[in-house]
Computed example of a mutant assay.
Amino acid sequence: MKCTYLEKNPKAANYMYSEIQQLKDFYTTHGVNIVLLKEPHIGFGLKPVQFTFRGNPIVIHIKDDYEDLKDQNPLLNLFLVLNELSFIDESTDFLNWCSENEVNASLEPLRQYYNDLLVFITTFKTYFADDRIDCFISDLDFQLNAGAAQYLRSI
């Protein structure tokens, strides 16, 4: 869903948290679009989305433990994408990432996916201060459904 949703939804336009405004600014500045996909599906509870950033689409598989991925909440979807990219970037290697996601490391398509994302992340993180992906909302707020994360889930 395009960001026009944000302009039409008065609740989404009334930002109480600077983190929400930062997500919106990132979304609009970089021409972000996120489309939920059914395929390709690599399993393990990872859900595919097409993440378009500055006109360049890439498929990212999101671990959506809280069933947050929804067409009608593009900012929450952006947070989930940023969180996943940050998680991959901070993993020490493929085996560490597989272990943290509880996925089978012997699957070659999974290794190829991980390596492809590392290439994308190398360029992607240059759009952030200190070349470090910023999710704009703390992981603790997200896990506890507090503060900006709670507000984000409600819009």
Rank of each mutant, 00 (worst) to 15 (best):
L140G: 03
T29P: 08
Q50Y: 05
W97A: 13
L80S: 06
T123I: 13
E108N: 10
D130W: 01
N33C: 11
F87W: 11
L80Y: 03
S86K: 15
A129R: 12
G147K: 08
S99V: 02
I20P: 01
E84D: 07
T123S: 15
K63I: 12
N96R: 02
Q150Y: 08
F142D: 01
D65W: 06
N96L: 00
F120M: 01
D25F: 07
V59S: 08
P48K: 05
D139T: 11
I88M: 07
I42L: 15
L80I: 02
L95F: 10
T123Y: 10
L144Y: 08
G31Q: 08
A146G: 06
A105H: 07
Q50C: 10
F94Q: 03
L144C: 07
L75R: 09
L140I: 15
R111G: 05
F79K: 06
Q22K: 11
L107M: 13
M16Y: 00
E90H: 13
N101Q: 07
Y17N: 13
V32R: 00
F128Q: 02
I88T: 03
I42E: 06
F94M: 02
S86H: 13
S91V: 12
Q72R: 13
T28F: 05
D141G: 07
K63F: 15
D116G: 07
I42T: 02
K70N: 10
E67G: 06
V35T: 14
K125L: 09
K125A: 05
V103D: 04
K24H: 09
L80T: 01
T92Y: 12
D139L: 15
P57W: 06
F120V: 01
E90K: 15
V59K: 08
S18T: 06
H30P: 00
R132M: 12
S106Q: 10
N115P: 00
Q112P: 00
D139E: 15
I60Q: 03
L140F: 11
L95A: 11
N77K: 05
L144M: 15
Q21W: 03
L37T: 02
K24S: 13
V59N: 13
E102V: 03
F53P: 02
F79A: 09
F87T: 10
L36T: 06
V35C: 04
V103S: 10
Q112E: 15
Q72G: 13
F128G: 04
Y66L: 14
G55Y: 01
H61K: 03
R111E: 15
V81L: 08
D116H: 11
G45K: 09
D134H: 09
L69E: 10
N83W: 14
F124K: 00
F120E: 01
F128L: 04
N56C: 09
T28N: 09
F44G: 14
V103H: 04
N101L: 11
P40I: 09
Y17Q: 06
T28K: 12
L69V: 08
A149E: 03
N33F: 09
G55Q: 07
L23M: 06
L110E: 07
Q143G: 10
Y27T: 00
Y114F: 15
L36I: 14
N83C: 09
G31D: 08
P40F: 11
T122P: 00
Y17R: 04
F51C: 12
C98D: 04
F142P: 01
P57L: 07
P40V: 07
D25P: 03
V32W: 00
I62K: 03
L107T: 00
Y113D: 07
N104D: 14
P74C: 04
E84H: 05
I58N: 09
Y127S: 11
R54E: 08
Q50M: 15
D134Y: 11
N101A: 00
P57F: 07
